[in-house]
Amino acid sequence: MKTKIIALLSAILLLPVLLAAQDVKQLVEKVKAKLDKVSDYQASGKMKTNVTFLKVPIANITMYYKKPNKMKIKSEKGFSFIPKGAVNINMSNSLSSGKYSVLDAGTDNINGTVVKVVKLLPEDDNADVVLSTLYIDETNLVIRKAKTTTRENGSYELEMSYGKYTEFGLPDKIVFSFNTKDYKLPKGVTFDFDDGTAKKTEDKAKNKKGRAEISISSYTVNKGVDDTVFQ
């Protein structure tokens, strides 16, 4: 009798937790279903890279995506440095495997929008992604923010703003933040001209966070993308 009472109490106490887990799993499934509507896309936009050791102009880029996880960012003119891990800016990549445990981590507020915080733990022990935290806008069923920790490519964060392509779950603006390392070359290799501006660079070198801001002007969705662009 005593055991039955304990079991009943435990069930009553765990019920909200289990229901919540079920809710977030359904929420993630809904977001995934929305993203699954896109088989491929080609997007045009501009990329602004802000890394301490990298002084680059704003690049006109074209992003290509094809299911299940092909992603390529190409600079239209010249060349660009694309942060490693930026291939995961397509959230469909993170959710495509479906092999993960979903945990409810409460709610948060992003720019006035209440979002559901969901943690994804991959079931595959060898997966590169160790943990993903998604901030899901339940009303529009889109991911507003994502934090990802990987084994090989460090941690990175994505912030997304939506507009014209919300129905496909595709953002208009993506801000990709990532960790950077120091960059240093021996003076005997570069033979720098000492013009007295070294201090300016030295002061700025303290910032170890890199940032890539992608503003997308247009998407061409589900019109087919040739495999050769990913090579």
Binding site: T52, K55, L185, P186, T190, T201, E202
Partner: peptide, 17 residues
């Protein structure tokens, strides 16, 4: 021809074509 990358001791600078 393409953009030019100039390496300094502690930074890289890209100049457009």
């Amino acid at each position: 021809s393409n953009n030019l990358m100039v390496a300094k001791v502690d930074d890289l600078r890209i100049i457009e074509t």
